[in-house]
Design a protein around this nucleic acid. Structure first.
Length: 908
DNA sequence: ACCTCCCGCCAAGAG
DNA sequence: CTCTTGGCGGGAGGT
């Protein structure tokens, strides 16, 4: 400990690092330089004020949690003991601290120099033991990772900036402030741009959009992916591999995959697409690659994409000759992209276990239900990069015609005409474009229409769930969409998982009991790995998956709860809630939602196996299960609101709409009385871990009671279960998100039960448990150290006061419900109504208290994801990316070329 | 030994 | 031409 102190001191007073210390000359080129830090140290005011990043660091599992406070301590050179750290953490958790930090952050547009500085210091301090100071001094490779850098970058901007404001990003400025060369910023920005989180406005200038249109973008990418037959390609590649495996085993399992398709799969590469010329530089751009990569996840049933598969597909597309070096390069790029996506909490790293060994892969943990995003006549084309659109356009058109022609006697001209007509004639089509949206859009719409046509199936679902275009047999199959459950917490995935999926469908209902999954195809689910403890492998597959509700769902859940709170609609709350939601509530919701989203990720990570699968069936009607509270149900479910729904322009609107609908339904829904006792089992798993918290939460592990609400068509077919265990007050006063809920695929569609936010607060401490976070989403609080507490468990509902908070915050009110300010999350622990950061979730607050301090490493990890998009000020919480790298970089050498105007100050 | 992926050279593009 | 972008792959840190 003392050592640590020394280190800190050393760092501060220490002369710049040898290597880096050198002045600009070389330093300039190196990104992270401690030297600067030392130099800067004096300048940075920060020490007293922890930076967001610092907060993040705190939570990072790997590092001892060092709160911003540390900085102060460091200055003092106090011995850094674990105890001290703990105290610090606690302190940090305190609202005051956070507020302060937040303010600082907000006020300071500043460079992160400070941050960097503090961060480095913190890191150093924390880590070091007596070890060499050098080690500490030197920013570890991880600390310089793109993912970490991306987090820092994201921390600078609000995830959901008010539509009115235009946030411009100056690459130079960012590079300087983050202390990296501009080149690195390009990588980040390119990926962000691929998701429309930013857009380029001019040289060196980008505009920050935040996540407002993320769902739309994802939806569009998914559509494109379908059009592009990405899924087929993947299936093809997978099949190949499987075949290889089979050969090895001499076993054969041809079950579910129609081989016939395979041949076609590869075609898509570039039929006639007018796409951009093959190998222009742009075609290889990171942006496009990123979009494609994301698309692969979106169309993947398993939501897991191995890097080599992605690389293969990309190479095939590019028509490049697949030489090894290209493959390698592709993979490198994919890592870059993946790091950014990971920092966005859209994906997480997993490993697919194959007979040959583990393969690096990533699993999609972002939103999977984009239905809410669509409906309106959103301009589909918007979110997609022009280049990609161009590239795809031709293909889409081609595919549409082909399809039409194939299934009819139309010739291409006729097909085109038909397509056009189809589009026009289906005003209701979700894909319908606004007028003037452009040919591209229309084509997509038409294609969709065509696809739908073909799919005679129930069409409640429309969407493009990954199967739409794919081979009818399998694709249409409801089961098909299911993701492989195989991924284990450990990140293992059964290679065969995808096959399993098909089986699953039929048996889904029985799944829980059956281990059938395994049986099929003889596939063994490796997934069990992590949780084997908790669950038998077989079960792993069968058990309900933990589903992270897409934003919309979150909103919905939240809306339900909140609806009442706003009070207007107290009794009829629902109705009021519905309408209100759109208007007043929305603001609050966003925050809540965001939190959820953030939290959910963490959970997801921990419980990889559980989540997923809902999506394919997305379109199905939603069923909402509401907590049984007598009053609540009524409150929440006021039917009247339905009309209101569309008030909001955004997707959020949809959400609202859904909410209202859901609410309406919910009122009735209770009748269904779907009780998920069954779910109890799944939940139990999670619960097991929970114990620690239970005491506080008051909740019992007992199987939660859920109200099953049949959803109206609008809701994607998800059934949502709200835990009945929640506190009585629940609905009305409850802050948003507090409601635990389970989202289930609609019966017809989804055989798979999706479990979301287990009622019980996860025992954070229990970290080791495989499903640590299975429960409710963790919000920013996690950062505080009690990750899970934040979970939206039934217990969460407890605090009534919080309810008021949501609406109050002006910032939150922004159109986007999603808007989560990091601050808020943090504050949860000690939420103060008055504070800007009002956490909103009472629950979280409570829990924090419960287990504020000790956070298991695992938990921590999970939490890190929360970080994305923290608002500038609030940021502190974020946890660093999986490996946690703390940017110790001093801003010193921005870029070789980069002038360091401001930097001069620092360096000086 | 393999996985990751940082770093920065240097060329394509933009102005 | 200068400067911005960003493809690319060597090679080193991590595991």
């Amino acid at each position: 400990m003392e050592v640590n102190c020394l280190t800190l001191k050393d760092l501060i007073s220490r002369p710049p690092r040898l290597d880096f210390a050198i002045e600009d000359g070389e330093n300039a080129q190196k990104e992270n330089i401690f030297v600067d830090l030392s130099r800067m140290a004096p300048k940075t005011p920060i020490k007293n004020e922890p930076i967001d990043l610092s907060k993040q660091k705190i939570f990072t599992p790997e590092r001892n949690p060092i709160t911003p406070v540390k900085l102060v301590d460091r200055q003092q050179a106090e011995p850094w003991t674990p105890t001290t750290n703990l105290k610090i953490l606690i302190r940090a958790a305190s609202p005051d601290m956070r507020d302060r930090e937040k303010k600082k952050g907000l006020f300071r547009p500043i460079e992160n120099k400070d941050d960097a500085f503090t961060g480095s210091l913190q890191l150093d301090a924390a880590d070091d033991s007596a070890v060499d100071e050098f080690e500490k001094q030197r920013p570890s490779r991880k600390q310089k990772s793109l993912g970490l850098l991306c987090q820092k970058f994201l921390a600078r901007y609000p995830s959901q900036p008010p539509s009115t404001e235009k946030t411009t990003i100056s690459l130079d400025e960012v590079a300087v402030s983050l202390g990296v060369e501009r080149r690195r910023i390009y990588d980040i920005v390119n990926v962000l741009e691929s998701l429309q989180l930013v857009s380029r406005v001019a040289k060196n200038q980008y505009s920050w959009h935040g996540t407002h249109s993320l769902l739309k973008t994802l939806r569009n990418l998914q559509r494109l992916g379908v059009e592009q037959k990405y899924e087929e390609q993947m299936a093809h590649l997978q099949q190949k591999e499987l075949d290889l495996i089979d050969d090895k085993f001499g076993e054969r399992r041809r079950d579910g995959c129609p081989d016939s398709q395979d041949p076609q799969l590869l075609d898509f590469s570039e039929p006639d697409c007018p796409s951009s010329s093959a190998n222009s530089r742009k075609d290889k751009s990171l942006r496009i690659m990123s979009q494609k990569f994301v698309t692969l996840f979106l169309v993947s049933k398993t939501k897991i994409v191995t890097l080599d598969m992605a690389a293969k597909i990309l190479i095939e597309e590019s028509q490049d000759t697949p030489d090894h070096s290209k493959f390698k390069t592709k993979v490198r790029r994919l890592y870059d992209i993946a790091n950014v996506l990971t920092s966005l909490a859209l994906i997480k790293k997993v490993h697919v276990t194959e007979d040959r060994g583990r393969k690096p892969a990533f699993e999609w943990i972002g939103p999977v239900d984009f239905s809410s995003a669509d409906d309106d006549l959103v301009d589909v084309s918007t979110p997609v990069l022009p280049e990609l659109k161009k590239e795809i356009y031709g293909h889409v058109q081609f595919c549409a015609k082909q399809k039409l022609a194939r299934h009819s006697s139309f010739n291409s001209e006729q097909a085109s005409e038909k397509i056009q007509r189809k589009v026009n004639s289906e005003p209701s089509s979700p894909y319908r474009q606004k007028q003037g949206s452009g040919i591209y859009s229309l084509e997509i719409g038409s294609l969709a229409a065509v696809s739908r046509q073909k799919m005679e199936d129930n069409s409640e679902v429309v969407a493009f769930a990954s199967q739409s275009v794919t081979p009818p047999s399998s694709s249409l199959d409801p089961a098909a969409p299911l993701r492989s459950p195989s991924v284990d917490s450990e990140y293992r995935v059964s290679p065969l998982s995808h096959q399993v999926l098909s089986v699953a469908q039929t048996d889904l209902k029985a799944l829980p009991a059956q281990s059938g999954m395994n049986g099929q195809g003889g596939v063994s689910l490796a997934s069990t790995a992590l949780d084997a403890e908790h669950q038998p492998p077989a079960l792993a597959a069968a058990r309900p998956l933990l589903y992270v509700p897409p934003a919309p769902l979150f909103m919905l859940c939240r809306g339900l709860q909140e609806g009442p709170s706003p009070g207007s609609g107290s009794g009829s709350g629902c109705g009021g809630g519905g309408s209100e939601v759109t208007a007043a509530e929305q603001p609050s919701m966003p925050s809540g939602q965001k939190r959820l989203s953030k939290e959910r990720r963490p959970q997801v990570e921990e419980e990889p196996a559980t989540k997923r699968q809902s999506r394919d069936h997305e379109d199905g009607p939603l069923s909402l299960v509401m907590p049984k509270k007598p009053s609540d149900s009524t409150d929440i479910a006021s039917p009247k609101t339905s009309e209101n729904r569309r008030s909001a322009p955004h997707e959020d609107t949809h959400m609202n709409g859904q909410l209202s609908a859901a609410k309406a339904v919910s009122g009735k829904a209770t009748t269904n009385g779907f009780v998920s006792s069954e779910w109890g089992n799944p939940s139990r798993n999670t619960e097991i871990e929970k114990p620690s918290k239970e005491n506080e939460s008051t909740k019992e592990p007992s199987p939660l009671q859920y109200l099953y609400v049949q959803s109206p068509a609008g809701l994607n077919g998800f059934s949502v279960l709200l835990s009945g265990s929640q506190s009585p007050h629940a609905v009305g006063p409850l802050p948003p998100l507090s409601v635990p809920c389970m989202v289930l695929p609609s019966p017809p569609l989804g055989a798979f039960p999706v479990l979301y936010s287990p009622t019980m607060p996860r025992p954070v401490s229990s970290a080791p448990s495989p499903l640590p976070n299975a429960g409710p989403v963790n919000f920013g609080l996690t950062s505080l150290g009690s990750t899970p507490h934040l979970l939206i468990g039934p217990a969460a509902l407890v605090n009534p006061k919080s309810s008021t908070l949501p609406s109050t915050d002006p910032q939150l009110q922004g159109p986007c419900s999603l808007h989560l300010s990091p601050v808020m999350s943090r504050s949860h622990g000690s939420v103060q109504p008055g504070s800007p950061a009002y956490g909103g979730h009472p629950a979280s607050t409570v829990k924090l208290q419960q287990s504020p301090v000790p956070v298991t490493p695992k938990n921590i990890r999970c939490t890190h994801q929360e970080t994305f998009f923290k608002t500038p000020g609030s940021l502190g919480d974020r946890v660093l990316r999986r490996k946690e790298r703390n940017p110790s970089r001093s801003s010193s050498s921005a870029q070789r070329r980069l002038e360091i105007p401001s930097g001069g100050g620092r360096l000086a």
